[in-house]
């Protein structure tokens, strides 16, 4: 069960893209340690933009975000520290195609955390074992299926021993028969008490694993509720429209 210690605190976040588009219009969100928050919302509502501000892949203009007690500012040292503690899993996997699976996992711990390669590789093998693809360790990402690639991507994030994991539509680029194996890994992580923010439209996952579901629309959070309430008795008109569309 989540504790009350906040891991992510976003207050009044405003974001304009360089072309003037107002992508985030005052967003507040607080995520406790061990909590799993699922963000839903129609396409273009700013889910990706919002989740990417947490590890400074997007900048924002107004408001404040602090991650694990460190305020996101323009100070590069803070940003690098936060990125080391915050893993991110992308829709398109973004594995490094020129490195083997094992090298994908060990790159960051070795060059960023300056840990011994042999020690990192032992840990990496254990992680690959856990996501069920240890036998693929010396293959290149291009030789794996989509589901296997996404599991490698999760293991790659885990190898940095993050305190928070961010997922941006991790199963949207997968063929239907591979969605299950990725969600299974995510379920396991949630059960172990990992703090997770997940953008996804997988209703089953949200219902079963999320502690809270958040609905975004036009750069704002319009509803925030426990999954049962959200799916059975949504309060906001936008939520009802959205659920009608995806059900």
């Amino acid at each position: 069960m989540p504790s009350t210690q906040p891991m992510i605190e976003a207050r009044g976040v405003q974001k304009w893209y360089p072309n003037g588009f107002h992508a985030l219009r005052g967003v507040d969100l607080s995520v406790s340690k061990g909590e799993v928050v699922v963000i839903m919302g129609p396409s273009g509502s700013g889910k990706s933009t919002f989740i990417r501000t947490f590890n400074a892949l997007e900048e924002f203009q107004e408001g404040s975000i602090s991650v694990d007690g460190i305020a996101l500012s323009n100070d590069l040292r803070n940003i690098d520290a936060i990125r080391c503690d915050t893993g991110m899993v992308f829709q398109q996997f973004n594995l490094f195609p020129h490195l083997t699976v094992l090298e994908n996992l060990s790159l960051a711990p070795v060059v960023v955390r300056k840990r011994r390669r042999s020690e990192v590789e032992t840990q990496a093998m254990a992680l690959l074992e856990r996501v069920g693809i240890a036998e693929q360790a010396s293959k290149y990402p291009g030789q794996l299926s989509g589901g296997q690639q996404q599991r490698v991507a999760i293991a790659r994030s885990l190898c940095m021993e993050p305190r928070i994991l961010l997922f941006d539509e991790p199963t949207s680029a997968l063929d239907p028969e591979m969605v299950g194996e990725v969600l299974e890994v995510m379920r396991g992580l949630a059960a172990e008490g990992m703090t997770m923010v997940v953008v996804t439209h997988e209703m089953g996952f949200a219902r079963e694993v999320a502690h809270r579901v958040v609905l975004m629309s036009e750069g704002q959070i319009v509803e925030e509720a426990a999954p049962e309430t959200f799916f059975t008795n949504p309060q906001h008109e936008r939520s009802r429209q959205f659920l009608a569309q995806i059900l």
């Binding site: 892949l57 893993g87 991110m88 992308f90 973004n94 960051a108 960023v112 994030s157 940095m160």
Partner: peptide, 11 residues
């Protein structure tokens, strides 16, 4: 996405 993934790992 390659640069983003590398940066998000703290590189």
């Amino acid at each position: 996405g390659q640069l983003e993934a590398a940066r998000s790992l703290g590189l």
